[in-house]
Design a protein around this nucleic acid. Sequence first.
DNA 1: GTTGGTGCAAACGGTTTGCATTTAC
DNA 2: GTAAATGCAAACCGTTTGCACCAAC
Lengths: 135, 135
Amino acid sequence: MDPTPKLRMTTQRQVIMEELRKVKTHPTAGELCQMVRERLPRISLGTVYRNLDILSRSGLIQKIDVAGQEMRFDGDIRDHYHLRCLDCGRVVDVEMELLQGLDEQVAAESGWDIFGHRLEFVGSCGDCRSQRTVN
Amino acid sequence: MDPTPKLRMTTQRQVIMEELRKVKTHPTAGELCQMVRERLPRISLGTVYRNLDILSRSGLIQKIDVAGQEMRFDGDIRDHYHLRCLDCGRVVDVEMELLQGLDEQVAAESGWDIFGHRLEFVGSCGDCRSQRTVN
DNA sequence: GTTGGTGCAAACGGTTTGCATTTAC
DNA sequence: GTAAATGCAAACCGTTTGCACCAAC
């Protein structure tokens, strides 16, 4: 059965977590791999993916699969919402209270078990907007 | 510059729209291709993708890129929220009022232009839940 | 010493694209 | 007749996986 194989804290895993916690940019696996390579030049992208998967399953980081985009990762495990720029793709946190009662409302209406919700705002960040008005 | 090439209503495009509007299941491109092939056996998946892209850009259908999943398409173009089953992947509509004022609130807080938001509930549908309790 | 982890490269799967041919207008 | 659309197959790209070697415990 092998219920929960015990995690080993390897150098790679350690550094991946540290680098991810260091930034607020919600990097993709590839971006994070680049960051980690500054300290561990021989780390492979496959290892980064494997660790990001394990760490998010363990609840140590968050996988934020932003709609229709490359997967991104967040060292901040508190539940919060995101805002995505349609022009440059960057993702930032939204400072906003969590919406209360919605999950219960949808559970009652649908008859499903509701685990939670994902709210994502889409727009254009200041930088991209000003570039667009130039054109 | 070629600002907006004029759309031709081909048989393929017509049938793709008809089949998509016929169902409430938010099919993937592959699923829709299968459905369309009942009527046009020689249609290619590439054509389906191209048409889905064109139709959604034209606002005739909706692309619902559910986070981290295969892309799905919706013949219903009214703004509405979705509910996804984590076990079987199906996506259904949520009967719920649109949340008012959130976009303005986030725009004010962030300084971005906000185009809208996407709200997606995740849970387990009745079928999958009952299967799980069996195990 | 055991077993989980790593690096590498190949495979995978959804999506996009190049191109010669067909079709709507 | 012309430009847009099609079918086909290959390319693309993010992600996963198989495997031999390595390292945490």
